[in-house]
Design a protein around this nucleic acid. Sequence first.
DNA 1: GGCACCCTATTTAGTCATACAATACGATCA
DNA 2: TGATCGTATTGTATGACTAAATAGGGTGCC
Lengths: 248, 248
Amino acid sequence: MFRTPDALIRNVHSQVADRVGISIVRGDVGVGETLPSEMQICEMMDVSRTVVREAIRTLTGKGLVEARPKSGTRVRPPEQWNQLDPDVLRWRLETSEMDTYLNKLFQLRCAVEPAAAALAATAAGQADIARIRAGYEGMAAAKVNEAFVAADIAFHQAIYFATRNEFFWPIAQMFDIALRQSFTIAARGSHRARALVEHHAVLEAIATGNVEGAREATNVLLKNSVDDLTRIRGREFAAPKAPPRGRS
Amino acid sequence: MFRTPDALIRNVHSQVADRVGISIVRGDVGVGETLPSEMQICEMMDVSRTVVREAIRTLTGKGLVEARPKSGTRVRPPEQWNQLDPDVLRWRLETSEMDTYLNKLFQLRCAVEPAAAALAATAAGQADIARIRAGYEGMAAAKVNEAFVAADIAFHQAIYFATRNEFFWPIAQMFDIALRQSFTIAARGSHRARALVEHHAVLEAIATGNVEGAREATNVLLKNSVDDLTRIRGREFAAPKAPPRGRS
DNA sequence: GGCACCCTATTTAGTCATACAATACGATCA
DNA sequence: TGATCGTATTGTATGACTAAATAGGGTGCC
C-alpha cells in the first residue's frame, strides 16, 4: 500500500495545471501572450477539455492568466500573480536560481518576522504559545536533522499564527514548501546548539509578553541564520545586490 | 456599450464561486465540515455541474477547501487559506468587522512597508522610481478625493514593486481591494497637505538611494496615517488589542 | 452471545464526450 | 471607410462512466 508520493499521481487536472503553470512561470509563454487554445492543450496532453478547463481555472484563480471568449487565455504580468501561493512557489522553485530565490525569501522574513514575533508577544493565547514551545522542544529532542528541520519550521510557523492576524498567515504557509532547503542547510551539526539558544530566547520573550524582546531576539536569530547561510554557501547571500542605476 | 460593472455579470462560475466562497468565509460551513455535494449545489443555484465544479476548483486553488471522492468537499482551516488573495480578501470584506479588518491590515503594513521602502532604495531602477513619482504627482495634481486616493494607492503599490522582490508583491495587490476605504477616510481635506509632504520624503529617499531615510520616512507616514484614522474613527484603531491571557 | 474483521454496496468526486451559446476578432463587401 | 457576416475560442449544459472512500452488513472467531 504505497501512499502516493504526494505529488505524483493525484488528479489529472492538477497535473495539467502543474505543467501549464510551470511553463508560464518559466516564461515559455511571455506576458500578454495567449497560451494554446483549450483544444490544442487537450491534444498536447491527451486529456479531455473538462480537465484542461479546470486546470486553467486553477491558474486563473492564482492570477497567472486571464481568459476571454474568442480572445484566448492570456498570461498576466507577474506583478499580479499570487507569488505566495504554495503552487506558484513550487513552480518557481523548479525554475529559478536557488540563491536568488532564498535571498529574496530572507528579505521578506527579515521584514516581517520580527514584527510578527512582537505582535505574537501581545496577542498570543495559551494554545499559541504551547504550539511555539512544542516546536522548540521538537528541535531540542530531534535526533536526526530531518526532525530538527521539521520542528524548526513548525516553530516559525507557529509564531506567525500566534499573531492572531490572518494576513500574516500566508507567509507562514510557504515555509515548508520554500524554506525546507535553507533550513536543512543551516541545521548542520555545530549550528544546532546556538540555534536552540536563540529559539529559546524568542519563545520566552513571546511567552512573557515581552514585545521588544521578542522583536530583538528574532532579529538576532535571523541575522545569524543569514550569516550561516552566507558562510556555508560561500558567497554573497542576503545582501541585496544593487542593480546598476543612475540618479534621476 | 456598457462596460459591465466589473463584478455583476461576468462568468457564471465566478458568481457561484463568490456565493460559496462568501458562505465559507462567513462560517456558514464550519472548518472540517463538508459543503453540499456538487449535485445539491447544482440544484440550489440552478446551474450545471460543470459550473459548480469549476467554481469549486477556484476555491480549492485558494486553499479554502479540499475535495475527495466520496468523502466530499471539506473546508480547510483558515490558517491554510490564501488570506492575501484578492477574492478571499473581498469575501472577508463583506463579512468582517471593518475596524478589526483595517487594524490587522495596518499591522501588516507597519511590519512590511518600511522594509519595502528600504529595499526599494537599494534595488529600484529608473522605471520603478518614475512610477513612484507618478503616484506622488498624481496625488499633488488631484482635484477630487477619488483621484487622490487612486494615486495614493498607486504610490504605495509602486514601492512594493520597486523592491524587485516578487514576494513583496502580493501585499501590494491587496491595496486597491482592501485599503481603498481606509485611504478614502484619510484623504479628507486638511490631511492632504501633510500627506503630500510625507509622501515626497519617501519618494526622495528612495530616489536617492537613502536606505535608512526611506525606512524612517515610511515609518513616519504610517504612524501618522494610523493616528489620523484613530482620531477620525473616534476609537482605538491600530493598537493591537491584547486578549486576556494568563502566563504559562 | 459478543466482538473483531473483512467484504460489498453506495455515495460522491473525477473524467470523458458532445452539443450549443455567446463573444470578439478579422475578412469581406458595399 | 464603414458595416456586416463568418469563424474561432471560451462559456455552459447534459449524460455517462470511472474511481475511491465510507458505511453497513455479514462472517468468522473468541
